[in-house]
Amino acid sequence: MTFRILSALLLAAMGLLPALPAKAERLMVSLSAHQIAIGSNYTGAQMALFGVVEDDGRDLLNLESYDVVVTVRGPREGMTVRQKERVGFVWINRSQQKFVAVPTVLAVASNRPTGEIATDAARRQMRLGLRAIVDAPEMSFESHDPDEPFRQALIRLKTKEGHWSEDPRGVVFVGPGFFRAPISVPGTAPTGNYEVEVVLLSGDRLAARRIASFEVVKTGFEERITALSQERSLPYGLGIGAMSLLFGWMASVIFRRD
């Protein structure tokens, strides 16, 4: 093995091997769960992503130089960021910027800061990091001139809300070519399908890309209540109305003093 690598290096150095065959890294990823079930005591969930990098043996010396960026994207929604401005004595919403298909949950984890992994242009092209994702052209219909503050505000507000996060040390290489990344879903995150994108980089080059997914679903009582409120909304509303009357009447019986 060592001999093969050495000889390859030697050949390359001697210029006898002008074009190395395209490297073929293989990336395998696995999530510890594919479904998060919401019950009455649900306050968010944790899971882990495991990944293995394999190449065809020519590049073993180089295994250390891989970078991994894991991006979790929740269900998408249209969002409008509004800015308050002073008009007379009051502050009112004046200008706004619409964003389409914004991931409600967005978590970026990498083995080192994305700024060190790739250049600005490469990050923007591969959508690595919150900033690059928000700057992507598919995020907004039209680009106003001063739309930079709106993009910053979107990142700031969503991060403060706890739905967006960036963890430059989230991906940990456990052994050569074997990594692990924790994924946490906040309790207030919406139900639906979550996409986990794993990007393997070697220098600035995209070496491999895998997509996994999991879903957040309501189960049991929570599922039945949601279904009831949507499919039989009139009985549901009447039921809550009747319940309010019943509780109010019960209280007046319990607390009756005369």
């Binding site: 929604e77 969002m79 409008t80 401005e85 009051v90 507000l157």
Partner: peptide, 16 residues
């Protein structure tokens, strides 16, 4: 509405 807001931006979800 009269004081300068600490955070002049807000996110509004048009649908849903």
């Amino acid at each position: 509405i009269a004081l300068t807001p600490a955070e002049p931006f807000s996110i509004y979800l048009p649908e849903g």
